[in-house]
């Protein structure tokens, strides 16, 4: 969950390199912290829905860039101070498939 993400570097990443502990933390972050705008069920709130229906057709790179750098003119901030490029890639691929629930 640390480190400054660099988008070009991401394209060279061989595969998803997010460890299990980090995955748990990422799931929690997406459900809880992204959820404060996008809704805990990710169906949208002040932010847009993050459901597979809403995201599956969108290009992966632009979604990753949105997470890391935000969307100017909207309330979406860039999360690069808290998420690495591989974190963002992991989040995007899982959002597009249907994001996992937190283990409770």
């Amino acid at each position: 969950m640390r480190g400054l993400g660099l988008l070009p570097a991401l394209l060279m990443l061989p595969a998803l390199v997010v460890h299990a502990d980090d995955q748990t933390a990422l799931i929690r972050m997406v459900r809880q912290d992204c959820g404060s705008c996008h809704g805990m069920t990710l169906k949208g709130g002040l932010g847009t829905p993050l459901t597979p229906q809403a995201l599956s057709e969108k290009p992966v790179e632009s979604l990753i860039a949105t997470i890391l750098y935000g969307r100017p003119g909207t309330a979406m901030p860039g999360w690069k101070s808290m998420l690495s490029a591989s974190d963002a890639q992991w989040i995007v691929s899982h959002l597009q498939e249907g994001f996992p629930e937190e283990r409770r």
Binding site: D33, G70, A75, P77, W79
Partner: peptide, 8 residues
Amino acid sequence: EKLPVFKM
């Protein structure tokens, strides 16, 4: 400088 806002 527009600062990122992590929670409203």
